[in-house]
Design a protein around this nucleic acid. Structure first.
Length: 274
DNA sequence: CAATAGCCCTGGTGGC
DNA sequence: TGCCACCAGGGCTATT
């Protein structure tokens, strides 16, 4: 499932190829993925425009067009964006194709079709609440120990759920949230306000470290994730707990457990994480 | 504010 | 081998 590191790698692998390209046509096989506006308006806002830039905000990907309009993607669970020189997609789950002026295509493919796509006028990002209410991202200047401390002082829910809430921190998903808590040695069901100064310092460092490592390794490929060139990531080879239920902890050899927290599968070491 | 359930959706998997 | 219930889970909504 693409989280911040995966979406960042997709952006990096696509941005230079897309810049200055003109979108000459679209082929939309699954119109319900377009959440705003309707199919006809979406096409009219996109076709004929040139791409100025591609950026990422949390797990959202944004393409800026030459008139200031935005194409916004959220890949959810199984969304993929890929640039294909030949102009022909071999992905059986291709849902949207953007035909470019050099004969290449930008393909949006999505197995489970939970992804979302929008076209926005300049200044319309408020239409996507998840985008406009998103908290600071790991590794950003706004994400500080003081910020985290202030929020946790008011947080009466479980720390795992806190980390997944995009209003607090933008970009963490289920895999990296579990990894953050493992690295910080914090039990996922701890209540936010119960975290000590030491815990918070450790967690803050772990969040930045885990996200940086994920990016360094080109993202985590469990099944579906690929970058913009169709390449897998490597961070699945460096996970401490996610997907390791029943396997020994690298620190203490205790078997990793999996529980449900806030409706999400949650992996942790019962010995190391307190 | 927090927890929970339901919804969207398809493919892989485990059990029998 | 075939069938089927179940699970994966991000983000949103409704309810308690």
């Amino acid at each position: 499932m693409p989280e911040l590191p995966e979406v960042e790698i997709i952006k990096r692998s696509l941005v230079d190829k897309l810049k200055t390209r003109q979108i000459i046509n679209t082929k939309i096989d699954l119109p319900r993925l377009i959440k705003w506006p309707n199919l006809t308006k979406f096409q009219s806002m996109v076709v004929g425009r040139s791409i100025i830039d591609m950026t990422r905000h949390g797990k959202y990907l944004l393409i800026t067009l030459d008139n200031g309009n935005l194409i916004v993607f959220h890949l959810r669970m199984t969304g993929r964006l890929r640039y294909i020189n030949s102009g022909v997609s071999d992905d059986p789950y291709t849902r949207i194709v953007f035909q470019l002026d050099n004969g290449a295509i930008l393909v949006y493919a999505d197995t489970r079709t939970l992804g979302t796509v929008y076209a926005l006028l300049p200044g319309e990002t408020w239409r996507i609440s998840g985008l406009s209410t998103m908290g600071p991202e790991p590794l950003s200047a706004e994400f500080t120990i003081a910020y985290l401390t202030n929020l946790l002082a008011k947080s009466r829910g479980k720390i795992k759920s806190f980390l997944l809430n995009q209003k607090y921190i933008g970009g963490l998903g289920n895999i990296y949230a579990d990894e953050c808590l493992a690295l910080a040695k914090i039990y996922p069901e701890r209540i936010g306000v119960s975290l000590t100064t030491e815990d918070i310092t450790s967690l803050y460092g772990a969040i930045n470290q885990v996200i940086a490592d994920g990016i360094r390794d080109g993202g985590t490929t469990f099944r579906d994730y690929r970058d913009g060139n169709g390449e897998k990531g490597h961070h699945q080879d460096h996970l401490l707990v996610y997907g390791r239920k029943g396997k020994p902890c690298y620190t203490c050899n205790t078997l990793i457990q999996k529980i449900e927290v806030g409706g999400r599968g949650t992996h942790f070491c019962p010995q190391c994480q307190k």
